[in-house]
């Protein structure tokens, strides 16, 4: 009996926290929806398709991503550059661990390669804070509603693709070791695809 009060306090706290957690995503989603209304016509067409996990040789599904620096990028417009496309999240240790490799590659191949890391469904504030803290300058994109992620289904992240100038997927990586190993791995792949 004497624990009844404690019980109610914890219950109230639990509900408060859980609802705040849900509320966050709901309001962010609403925000996102209004932001995306302008793009909706093109988005809707593609969102009706179902996407299969990609293999080397497939055409990379097109998307337009909102970058954290305020600009946007469309995959199909990168006809003169090879794209190193990565999917990541702040809660994913291996993703965060390999990020220095992307920073280095983006700097080294400034004129030939677009390095683009698309976040997996986290809110913009989380992504911004992450970038600020780590000081990354390469292209990092939001995907709050998961529409880009939906086009690139994968059983896990980090998930990284090398996409040729012709828009065809050349190489696919699932998982990552340390930044140095990944740097060498991606560098070799980029050299190979650039040399084609």
């Amino acid at each position: 009996m004497k624990y009844k009060k404690l019980n109610s306090v914890i219950l109230a706290m639990a509900l408060g926290l859980a609802v705040t957690g849900c509320g966050n995503t709901a309001s962010e989603q609403a925000q996102q929806e209004t932001q995306q209304e302008s793009q909706q016509e093109t988005e809707q067409e593609s969102s009706q398709e179902t996407y299969k996990e990609l293999a080397a040789g497939d055409t990379a599904p097109d998307f337009t991503a909102q970058l954290a620096d305020g600009s946007s990028i469309t995959l199909s417009e990168q006809t003169d550059k090879v794209v190193l496309l990565n999917f990541w999240a702040t809660w994913c240790g291996p993703c965060v661990g390999e990020m220095p490799a992307f920073e280095k590659l983006a700097e080294e191949y400034k004129d030939e390669v677009v390095v683009l890391a698309v976040n997996c469904l986290e809110d913009e504030e989380t992504v911004n804070q992450f970038i600020e803290e780590n000081g990354y300058t390469f292209s990092i994109a939001y995907d709050v509603d998961g529409s880009i992620n939906a086009k690139y289904p994968t059983s896990g992240i980090p998930y990284t693709l090398v996409i040729g100038k012709d828009g065809v997927v050349k190489k696919i990586y699932l998982g990552a070791q340390d930044a140095e190993t990944q740097y060498n791995e991606y560098k070799n792949a980029l050299e190979e695809v650039l040399g084609e």
Binding site: M13, A14, L15, G16, L17, A18, V19, T20, G21, C22, N24, T90, E122, D123, E125, T126, Q129, F130, E133
Partner: peptide, 11 residues
């Protein structure tokens, strides 16, 4: 450090 885990702690 980027986001407080409201939902999972609450649930």
């Amino acid at each position: 450090k980027y986001k407080f885990p409201y939902y999972v702690l609450g649930i």
